[in-house]
Write a protein that binds this DNA or RNA. Structure first.
Lengths: 136, 136
DNA sequence: AAGTGGTAGTCTCAAAAAGAGACCAGCACT
DNA sequence: AGTGCTGGTCTCTTTTTGAGACTACCACTT
């Protein structure tokens, strides 16, 4: 992580944007962040960043997602412009989901978070264990 | 965004970590990502990245969070090691919440996502409007 | 000819999570 | 003696999510 990236000017701009001038309730950044912070959204974006997938492929790839939530999460991602849905008139018809340019550009910073999670999941698990031990 | 950051090697490592070798269900990255992708988690981390806050201050800063969810989200963030909770024996006692080192290190990549959201929220809103118009 | 499986979903009902608001104890100030 | 501030918890209702049955169409097998 290049610490130059996180300079003060950028920080201040981020705070201004996210607080909307001190008001956390009506914040444009919240609108976007909450659209991609659902339980399955980021996971599906990560999968589709690899390559396009069909509906059934995604269902098998993420076995613990219900068909209902897969449908809905893909719908929401499509609505927000991250995902493109294309129906092929085969028999039976197949549907392919892929990232749009917007989706790919969003995946870039998301990937930073994924990398952080990869590097730090041990620390988080330890913190959890220590906290639970202290509570008992 | 420096495109060098997102090189192929990093990508492959991320995929490997997040898929856990093809299994999306038992994925350590999911464990971490889902801990910070709750509706309020990222917002509170963003607030605490600015400076420590007291319970009541956070409640006033985010007026549309219920007291119940504020308590619980702060508890979860504390459990995962992102947030430190300190009680001051004043009368009435006050409680201060602040980011730990782990929390600050997680905020760095989170900030990238916030910056992206700031830059692209217009595009997302336009995509939404276009999608809704096409459906009608 | 009838059954089997694969396509992408929808529909219904139960379970879990989140929101709304009352309530608590203790102290300061008026 | 009443009001307000502190940081919560408790209960009830509403929303979100999960589990699983059901759909229609076609290809392939038996």
């Amino acid at each position: 992580m290049d610490s130059k990236i996180f300079n003060l000017k950028a920080k201040l701009e981020v705070y201004k944007a996210m607080t909307n001038g001190g008001n956390f309730a009506d914040c444009p950044v919240r609108d976007v962040i909450q659209g991609i912070s659902g339980k399955w959204s980021s996971l599906l974006v990560m999968a589709l960043a690899e390559r396009p997938y069909r509906f059934g492929e995604l269902r098998r790839l993420v076995p613990d997602i219900s068909q209902r939530m897969l449908t809905q999460t893909l719908y929401d991602l499509q609505r927000d412009g991250y995902v493109h849905r294309e129906v092929f008139p085969t028999k039976p018809p197949s549907v392919e989901y892929s990232l749009t340019d917007l989706g790919r550009s969003m995946f870039a910073p998301l990937q930073m978070l994924v990398q952080w999670a990869e590097l730090n999941h041990d620390a988080v698990r330890e913190a959890r264990a220590a906290f639970d031990a202290a509570q008992a």
